[in-house]
Computed example of a mutant assay.
Amino acid sequence: MPSEKEKTPPSHISINGEDVEGHDTPKSARSSSGWDGKLRIEKKLELVNPEALSDPEYSDEENVMPGETIDADEDLLDDYPLDSTEIDLVHARISSLPSLNLQRFTSVARLCLRQNSITTIESLSSLAATLTELDLYDNLIAHIRGLEDLLNLTSLDLSFNKIKHIRHLSPLVNLTDLYFVQNKISVIEGLDGLTKLRNLELAANRIREIQNLEGLTGLEELWLGKNKITEIKGIDSLSNLKILSIQSNRIRSITGLSQLPQLEELYISHNALTSLSGLENSKALRVLDISNNQIEKLEGIGHLEELEELWASYNGFADFAEVERELGGKKALTTVYFEGCPLQLKAPALYRNKVRLALPQVVQIDATFVRVS
């Protein structure tokens, strides 16, 4: 039970805080002029790079300051012989290349550092005499630098990083394979002089126009899927091109292929095509993927005698007679996909048999192989 003294309230309490018996009275935070104790100084800031405000792709690459190098807790390469030809450190939580002390290795031809936390390409010059393949897939790299001495590189993979601009690659004249999948690239540039390049992958970026590829006359494979491209153009000089992948873009018509006599595979699914016009000179096509478009007629592919695979799911094809007329005589044709088309949706129980009757040479209809009786 509390004592009588504990029950007795204070004899005097001021509700405005000016006088509280038995307590220190806090001083007001406001002065007579109303100042509330917060320091207010007018700040005038001046941007040294005002263009960064108007250019969403701006990159102040030349003024990036190097960060502090933190020594690794352990030597991840302790078990590798000094004459190793391959070093493979996948998902090893590497953030600093200097910490690997790569200069001690004398014969490395392939260096794979996938799925790490590397932000800066550095300390690789010591491998220049032997390194031919560099894989930095899935890191945190924003700027291409530190590669100028790697003149023997034939394969470079910088996919799944944060790169906005293709730069500083012109010395790497021996490159045959170059990968930039899933970055932030909006302009194809910086590839001048790479005449030995055979395979270029730029899928899943922010590219709106195919450009600056004129000098890549040896290119055989070009992968541009999942960008913002509206027109196939700028590839007339790529006379050796065999594979063009341009699915998941914004293309409404097939254009720009007339100068590509060697083209064997065309992947143009998930666009806005309404016809197959534009393939008149693509007589070497073996694989054609036109799935997920708005095409209703097969007219335009009857002359493709080398065709082996036709992927045409989720379009408007509805006439089995047209299927037989356009595709029936193609002896090399082994695979057709019409899933999701009216051909399949209107009579799913009869669909496969009707395709077999129209195209007896095929061995696969959609994902299922045809039983040979």
Rank of each mutant, 00 (worst) to 15 (best):
S11L: 08
I15H: 14
E18F: 15
V20R: 05
V20C: 10
T25L: 13
S31G: 11
S31K: 01
S33P: 03
W35R: 08
L47G: 05
E61K: 13
E68P: 07
S84D: 02
T85S: 12
H91Y: 10
A92E: 12
L102S: 03
T106A: 11
R110D: 04
L111M: 03
I121R: 01
A129F: 12
E133C: 13
Y137I: 12
I144T: 00
G146S: 02
D149F: 13
L150Q: 00
L158Y: 03
K184P: 00
K196F: 13
K196P: 04
E231V: 15
G234K: 15
S253E: 15
T255K: 10
P261G: 00
L263F: 10
E265S: 08
S277P: 02
L279Y: 03
A284R: 05
R286F: 06
D289E: 13
N293R: 07
Q294L: 09
E299G: 06
G300L: 08
I301P: 02
E306A: 13
E308A: 11
W311P: 00
N315C: 00
L327C: 13
L327K: 11
K330W: 05
A332Q: 09
G340S: 02
G340M: 03
A349N: 15
I365N: 08
T368G: 04
V372Y: 15
S373Q: 14
